[in-house]
Design a protein around this nucleic acid. Structure first.
Lengths: 351, 351
DNA sequence: TCCAGTTACTGAATCGATCCAGAAGGGCGG
DNA sequence: CCGCCCTTCTGGATCGATTCAGTAACTGGA
């Protein structure tokens, strides 16, 4: 067994408090004694105060948790998520805090347990589906948190973008280009993970809050332009992945009157859509495609999209958590978005 | 203040042990009493056993630490690192373990403190520079760990590839194509972070173990082919980033007899080299470039490289940590690598 | 010389649980 | 009816530190 602080104290012949002070409050004892203590500790192989015991007594851990709805391994696959975490990490680092990444199992009970068992001083909640239950669990623990995706309560800390307005901006761009027959591509559009076509029925039923807002924003733009919702098609991807985006998009080829544009709810899906369209011979590449997020690959692919500041979002979230503003009302921060027009969007082809 | 387990016990009129059992050992009490306890807890807003206290008493945390030498935010920028963590996350998930990401400050003392304070049951040590000091600190804490990069001690758990042989294979590929005047591109080649040209002096002096092995492997191939080391040039990138790779490569243009190929120690650097060469008018694009790792962008860029199974490396590392083989000698796992020839390597141009 | 003010250190209480030996009560075979 | 086992629950010790009020010795100013 490793020696404890107590053992060191006994070896040196001082009280435990003094040994503790040697580590955490050097000014509380003579530097001579301190040296003697540290030397003895070294000799005995004492690794310093146990982090867990220290946390218990001190009442805080020194780590912030980042909650992901989906599996952790998936989280790292999503470029936007990675950039978000990068931002969180950056801020955490500045505050000498570690990062505890917590994957939330899909079932509510498991998710609750995960949050209850996480040794963290607070949480950044990254874009989850069944968010409310999770926030409640955090509240029960009495820990602070920052959300990013769904509509926050008035007194919750939050950082995000105006999803709906941002989505509106890309859609309006397509409308301006003359597109009227358009497919909206989102993941998790229906509770059951169906893939394929759907008529736009009631977007408010979409369970995933971010997707819902974005689809609503898309729909807004068409409504404004007088395009009937019935002219729109919704493609449901099984996942927010490139492959799922491609798979969902392939359904278009089977339509009698295929759309002239695909409006995706994320860049990842949009890239998938491009993949699928490229397979479609001459017709495919003529279809306009837009994304959302502006991940790195978007630039390479020439994807028209809406940029949101991913790292900044993460950084701001962590900052909001680690050193909260005096004024509670300053706890909700809206980040700007920009429409980035590249080469994947263009006027409706004449033919 | 949140109620504690003790408060719940008093409210229900049972002992603390019983409440504890209600949460962690349902078979130790009648289900009727258990229900009563949980109900009372719910009423009082008791969030369940405190993770820190539980960890202290139980003697383990339920999280594995991943140690990064560089800043956390940088770690997420490196595609290879991200894939490695993805693998670790996957395995951790299977074992119901959280991930604690621990950035190690560049200074030895800070790094030691970070390791001493990390609340984890064991560590995956991702490719660090001053690795030995860190491993010692972990050993002092008596915690298990798995390394990936440097040469392990006989009884350390380790997962990795034969860096030198793998590096040899790309270099041999270039030799076969006729290249004789070649630049080796690595980061952190010298202790002081110099950028620019260097003659190959003594590769064994390179501080970063992985870079050292790879450069050595490159050199091997040329030695075998009878190419004098003096024919080789070493480019030192300040960082393992695309930009740093590009910056280092620009020095080539100033050489009287520029190399016909650039052998990079990582894909990230290689992509940077390609960027730089593309700027160089007609000469640049003729230079062959090879990378190392086979990250996703490598395929897109047509980069010739050596593939190593990144996710698998992470997964194996975590697996080795979380459920170690009976036989200690099975604790060192060598993963396979493959030479992937694409379009950035070709024969020496005639001119 | 005396008292106030520092400095250096001690001891007991505490953080919030889990563990373990053991007690009380019920069921059952002999 | 006794003894044994099983189930259900209890109390106290314990995990490894930190905190805080308090003691003792020393310093310095009047």
């Amino acid at each position: 067994m490793k020696p404890t602080l107590r053992a060191v104290a006994e070896a040196v012949g001082v009280s435990r408090s003094t040994v503790s002070n040697a580590y955490s409050r050097p000014d509380q004892l003579s530097s001579e004694l301190r040296e003697r203590i540290l030397e003895a500790a070294r000799q005995m192989g004492y690794p310093g105060p146990d982090p867990t015991a220290r946390s218990l007594r001190r009442g805080f851990v020194g780590a912030i948790g980042v909650l992901f709805t989906s599996r952790l391994s998936y989280a790292f696959t999503d470029p936007f998520a990675v950039r978000f975490v990068t931002g969180v990490a950056e801020a955490a680092e500045r505050h000498d805090s570690s990062l505890l990444l917590v994957p939330l199992p899909p079932d509510a009970a498991g998710a609750r347990r995960a949050v209850e068992n996480a040794a963290a001083d607070g949480f950044c909640v990254y874009c989850t589906g069944g968010e409310e239950g999770i926030l409640d669990t955090i509240r029960r623990r009495g820990l602070p948190f920052v959300t990013t995706s769904s509509r926050p309560r008035a007194d919750d800390r939050w950082v995000g973008i105006d999803e709906r307005a941002a989505a509106h901006s890309v859609a309006a761009h397509l409308v301006d280009l003359g597109h009227r027959r358009v497919a909206l591509l989102g993941h998790d559009v229906l509770p059951r993970a169906e893939t394929g076509l759907l008529r736009v029925a009631d977007v408010t039923d979409v369970p995933h809050p971010t997707t819902r807002e974005r689809l609503a924003g898309f729909a807004d733009a068409f409504a404004t332009a007088g395009v009937a919702w019935s002219g729109l098609t919704v493609l449901t991807a099984a996942d927010n992945t490139r492959d799922a985006g491609a798979a969902a998009t392939r359904a278009l080829a089977r339509m009698p009157e295929p759309p002239t544009a695909v409006l995706a709810a994320s860049d990842v899906l949009a890239l998938g859509a491009l993949d699928a369209l490229r397979e479609q011979g001459e017709w495919g590449p003529q279809v306009s495609v837009t994304g959302f997020d502006d991940i790195a690959e978007a630039a390479t692919a020439g994807l028209t999209t809406v940029r949101q500041p991913a790292e900044q979002k993460g950084r701001t979230a962590a900052e909001l958590l680690l050193d909260p503003p005096e004024d509670t009302r300053a706890g909700q921060i809206l980040l700007p978005t920009t429409l980035v027009v590249r080469t994947t969007s263009g006027p409706v082809p004449r033919s």
